[in-house]
């Protein structure tokens, strides 16, 4: 099994390290043609504005949409959640429109409000999960087809709609493999 990590900008190396830790093969994806050979795709944290621009520049949106239509899973963390969402506050343009979420960027405020929290995430087991939020987005509204998998302060922070998984925090920064293992199971391999 090969999982691609979109490597246009951001914390892609951390995701690759997590994949290796789970025993999966990771591949840096910089051009759309590389999507053909992979079984799943991770869109990492980074600056969503920058990642969006670079995606458009090289024709990623259409290719990622057909990747998703083929049933292969996609996991977006933080900025990855933003680019996968259906609606971003203050932005007209939809990028991927693959999960029915209304998202507010930098919703907790500036860097000074970035935080670490021990969260109970039932679908990952009883042990708490250390969630790192960095200038993170908030899911303002989730559509009916979206399954809310975890919450923090009454907001959904992990969500899934069929083969699309998102988290508003950074599971790649903590060394806890449970989110990545869950995603790898979604590839069905």
């Amino acid at each position: 099994m090969i999982v691609g990590v979109l490597a246009l900008q951001g914390a892609f190396r951390e995701h690759l390290k997590m994949l290796r830790g789970c025993g999966a093969e990771g591949l840096e994806i910089r051009l759309p043609f590389q999507l053909d050979g992979i079984d799943g795709l991770i869109i990492p944290g980074g600056e969503s504005t920058t990642i969006s621009k670079l995606m458009l520049e090289y024709g990623f949106p259409e290719r990622i949409k057909s990747f998703a239509a083929s049933g292969r899973p996609i996991f977006g963390t933080c900025a990855g959640l933003i680019v996968l969402a259906d609606k971003i506050e203050g932005k007209k343009q939809k990028l991927l429109n693959l999960i029915d979420l209304d998202v507010r960027r930098n919703a907790y405020g500036r860097q000074i409000s970035s935080r670490e929290v021990d969260l109970s995430i039932p679908f990952l087991g009883t042990e708490s999960f250390r969630a790192v939020f960095i200038r993170s987005p908030v899911i303002v509204k989730a559509g009916r087809k979206v399954e809310a998998l975890a919450c923090y302060n009454d907001r959904v922070i992990v969500a899934r709609q069929k083969n699309i998984l998102v988290s508003s925090f950074h599971p790649e920064l903590t060394g806890d493999f449970r989110m990545h293992r869950y995603f790898l199971e979604m590839t069905g391999k």
Binding site: A7, L8, F12, E14, S114, R115, E116, V132, I134, H170
Partner: peptide, 21 residues
């Protein structure tokens, strides 16, 4: 429990800037 301004959070923002200008 929430903790702010930890080293993970401070160094974490730099991680998010990687591959950037």
């Amino acid at each position: 429990m929430e903790v702010f301004g930890t080293f993970t959070v401070r160094a974490g923002l730099a991680e998010m800037l990687k591959g950037g200008v």
